[in-house]
């Protein structure tokens, strides 16, 4: 059976997920994820041609809210939960580079 997920793939998804893995974890997670994907391979037996995708189990549509402002949150209450703040803002280590 073809390798369903490689170490290289796991390194990539760990980066996408902003996680760092030790060598041992990389090894372990790669084989565990491969097991799950192997199990999921049972759906390959299904004929899914022309089957539409379902993203929502219950059909609700056009849910709209009136454009009426409501009082927001108290800044002090919100900032009290933040790891680091400065001058009414959330402080973070330097962001190198712009948003992708």
């Amino acid at each position: 059976m073809a390798e369903r997920i490689s170490r290289h793939d796991v390194v990539h998804v760990a980066w996408l997920a902003r996680l760092e893995l030790s060598d041992e974890e990389l090894e372990r997670f790669t084989s565990q994820l491969a097991d799950v994907l192997d199990h999921a391979a049972d759906v390959e037996a299904l004929d899914l041609d022309g089957v539409p995708a379902t993203s929502h189990p219950y059909p609700v549509g056009n849910v709209l809210r009136d454009d009426v402002p409501e009082p927001g949150l108290d800044r002090a209450e919100v900032l009290a939960q933040a790891p680091e703040t400065e001058a009414g803002q959330f402080r973070v280590p330097p962001v190198r580079g712009e948003a992708p």
């Binding site: 402080r91 962001v95 580079g97």
Partner: peptide, 20 residues
């Protein structure tokens, strides 16, 4: 985001402040 320090240049900033 406001990039603080490093003359405001994003790549040299010392830290950043975020206003939502």
């Amino acid at each position: 985001s406001t990039h603080v320090g490093g003359a405001g240049r994003i790549d040299d900033a010392a830290w950043s402040l975020v206003d939502y």
